[in-house]
């Protein structure tokens, strides 16, 4: 268990609201707390609109949080005021964006896009070194060296996503927020990119916040997983526990909907419907993440703990259900 490892990121009671004070206020992220340890991959899953991207953007300080704290390597991110501190922060923490199209400047060549961070942080000795670094990065993410002089529109969706990954890797960050980094990629490249991210994690000790809705891939890459719904964390635990022994009904429903590459299985698949009304708060029974089994938390009230303990125990009795693929 990672408890004896260093905490790279501490998210404390983070709230990110949009349109505060207006009638249509959105509580995109509503009081979430979690830690990420050095060298760990923390997977954040949840349905569309649950607040994953918003959480990522708040953590990297693209938004000013409505409330709560982000502690990065022991320091409060909002305390970075000097240019030097900010520069160091942007070098150490990088984000791979969900929408590769919107995040690549169409007027810049791939080389200039990837080298932007290299220039800002003066990481290249000279022009040749800069070019070399870019070419190495292109190869790292499975593109060709001669792609460097082309423009984003000349690439397919998946190729553009890999340019975004190369750009994030260029400044050699220690922490990467990857927002759906592989959902635009085809499976064979997905496997390459995920294996690449794992390799970088092992070689360079990188730490990731991996945001995705592809649960099978998240399970594969993550050490721990958090399940987000309506801006709140419903369940946090070791990846295998969350998948094979889900505690929250919402997690169960999510897992039951994962498509499997097997036509027979798909023809007979049964999805577990989810009734979101169980998330409604009850008077005097505040809900928060509570530990049910070691390291495995579920959002519940004191009164509900015994129910989840029983659910956890029931998994120990029968063998966990694994799809027949």
């Amino acid at each position: 268990m990672p408890e004896n490892r260093k905490k790279v990121l501490e998210v404390k009671h983070l709230k990110q609201y949009f349109g505060v004070g207006k009638p249509g206020m959105v509580k995109a992220v509503d009081d979430i707390s979690f830690d990420i340890y050095e060298g760990e991959v923390f997977g954040l899953v949840g349905e569309s609109g649950s607040g994953k991207t918003t959480a990522g953007r708040s953590i990297i300080h693209l938004y000013n949080p409505t409330d709560g704290q982000i502690i990065f390597n022991g320091k409060d991110v909002s305390s970075f005021k000097s240019k030097k501190d900010k520069l160091e922060f942007t070098r150490n923490m990088q984000m791979i964006f969900q929408d590769p199209q919107a995040s690549l400047n169409p007027r810049m060549t791939v080389e200039d896009i990837i080298a932007e961070g290299i220039d800002v942080h003066h990481l290249a000795k000279d022009k040749a070194d800069r070019r070399q670094k870019v070419e190495d990065l292109l190869e790292t993410v499975g593109l060709n060296r001669d792609h460097a002089s082309r423009y984003p529109h000349e690439f397919s969706g998946g190729q553009r996503q890999r340019i975004g990954i190369a750009r994030a890797l260029a400044v050699e960050p220690s922490f990467i927020i990857a927002d759906e980094p592989i959902s635009a990629l085809d499976v064979s490249i997905q496997a390459q990119v995920v294996n690449l991210m794992k390799e970088l994690q092992e070689q360079k000790g990188l730490t990731y916040l991996f945001i995705a809705h592809d649960l099978s891939m998240v399970k594969y890459i993550s050490d721990r997983i958090g399940v987000l719904h309506f801006g709140r964390l419903l369940e946090v635990g070791p990846a295998d526990d969350v998948y094979l022994k889900p505690l929250h009904d919402y997690t169960k429903s999510l897992i039951s909907a994962v498509p499997e590459p097997d036509p027979e299985f798909e023809r007979t698949r049964k999805r577990v419907p989810y009734d979101a009304s169980i998330e409604q708060d009850k008077e005097g029974q505040p809900r928060k993440l509570r530990e049910i089994t070691p390291g495995h938390f579920v959002r519940c009230s004191e009164e509900e703990v015994s129910f989840y303990q029983e659910r956890a125990a029931s998994y120990e009795k029968k063998a966990p259900e694994v799809p027949n693929v």
Binding site: N144, V187, S188, A191, N195
Partner: peptide, 20 residues
């Protein structure tokens, strides 16, 4: 290769197709 590199909820490692 495609079918082989597809993760399932029970897979433990991914067979990427090498190369580009």
């Amino acid at each position: 290769g495609l079918l082989n590199s597809m993760p399932t909820l029970s897979s433990t490692d991914l067979e990427a197709i090498p190369g580009t």
